[in-house]
């Protein structure tokens, strides 16, 4: 029988939507019983949120002061212990899951399937390689636990309405103290979250400065959109790193993506391939971004953006 354990991602007492996307992926495996593990110092609130996810049969809640911050080498031995009795252990392919899940796989002595984008069977998956320029079928050996990260942009978040039982689990695992959390500098913003927002406006190198990004923020606010950026814009210090979209930034799938002054390098396009509608604004009619844009507009962003905002 297929039993899947999903490691919940959460911050400040809130369950991250990536967890609900992992549930959707797990549901693609026929007949799977789906459990969610919440590891935290005080897991109750997050466990209650996880229990409401549609399709979740049980929530395991692991309270431990050592789990106050998601330190992979602290969480991994606990998840590996919990994994006993499960055929699959899933985490999201966010920085949280990418950090943690390979440790779980190593403790279990199994390979990890990274970035599951489609399920062909309990042991058969599709995943992207070469910045998404090829999709490969991979098969994990049966009779071993399957450890995988779920490419969140490929899966919708399941809804709520579930009422899973929450069970306090105690895990007997030696936890290392060699790694200590010092701090988290969060980009505080009341704008929508880049990874789950239905609309995103991104700026590239052409925006020219942090000051210049005001036109991007302003359009985003008008649309109720999240703000993203190319690597060039982040490297240049116009915006913080957590706004980077692409192969090595965030892979997103909004309904509407507006790329402003972004050329369309393959590493950037990898991050937006699953977007519903892509709009590109670029002064170079030959820019590669236009090859994949649903709507392209050639011109100077500094004149077009204020016009666009006014026309909305």
């Amino acid at each position: 029988m297929t039993k899947i354990l999903i490691v919940a991602e959460h911050l400040d007492g809130k369950l991250n939507s990536a967890t609900a996307r992992c549930v959707a992926c797990a549901q693609a495996i026929a007949g799977a019983e789906i459990h969610v593990a919440v590891l935290a110092d005080a897991p109750d609130a997050v466990a209650a949120q996880a229990a409401q996810l549609a399709g979740v049969a049980k929530v395991l809640s692991v309270a431990n002061p050592a789990n106050a911050h998601p330190i992979a080498q602290v969480l991994a031995p606990q998840v590996a212990k919990l994994a006993a009795g499960y055929t699959h252990v899933f985490g999201p392919s966010t920085t949280f899951g990418k950090d943690l899940m390979p440790c779980v796989a190593a403790l279990l002595g199994v390979a990890q399937v990274s970035d599951v984008m489609a399920v062909d069977g309990a042991y058969a998956f599709k995943r992207p390689i070469y910045a998404g320029n090829a999709i490969v079928d991979v098969t994990a050996p049966e009779g071993q636990t399957v450890v995988a990260t779920v490419r969140t942009a490929s899966w919708p978040a399941v809804g709520t309405g579930g009422s899973a039982a929450v069970e306090a689990a105690s895990v007997d695992a030696a936890l290392p103290t060699h790694t200590r959390f010092v701090g988290l500098q969060q980009g505080k913003s009341d704008r929508p979250d880049l990874q789950s927002a239905p609309k995103v406006v991104s700026g590239g190198r052409a925006v020219g400065s942090a000051e210049g990004f005001k036109v991007i923020y302003s359009l985003a606010d008008k649309l109720g959109a999240a703000v993203g950026a190319s690597r060039a814009a982040v490297d240049a210090g116009y915006v913080p790193n957590e706004l980077q979209v692409g192969q090595t930034g965030k892979i997103i799938a909004p309904e509407l993506y507006i790329a402003v002054g972004i050329s369309g390098a393959i590493q950037h396009l990898t991050g937006i391939k699953d977007a519903g509608t892509i709009v590109a604004i670029n002064k170079d009619p030959e820019a590669p971004i236009f090859e994949i844009a649903d709507f392209g507009l050639v011109g100077d962003l500094f004149t077009l953006l204020p016009d666009l905002e006014a026309a909305l």
Binding site: P128, N133, V136, F295, G296
Partner: peptide, 21 residues
């Protein structure tokens, strides 16, 4: 050895070029 068997490779679904407004 290795643990995952890789099978078929496929190009990603292509996004078609849209329209210029």
């Amino acid at each position: 050895g290795d643990h995952l068997t890789t099978g078929r490779h496929a190009p990603p679904p292509k996004r078609s070029k849209g329209v210029m407004v």
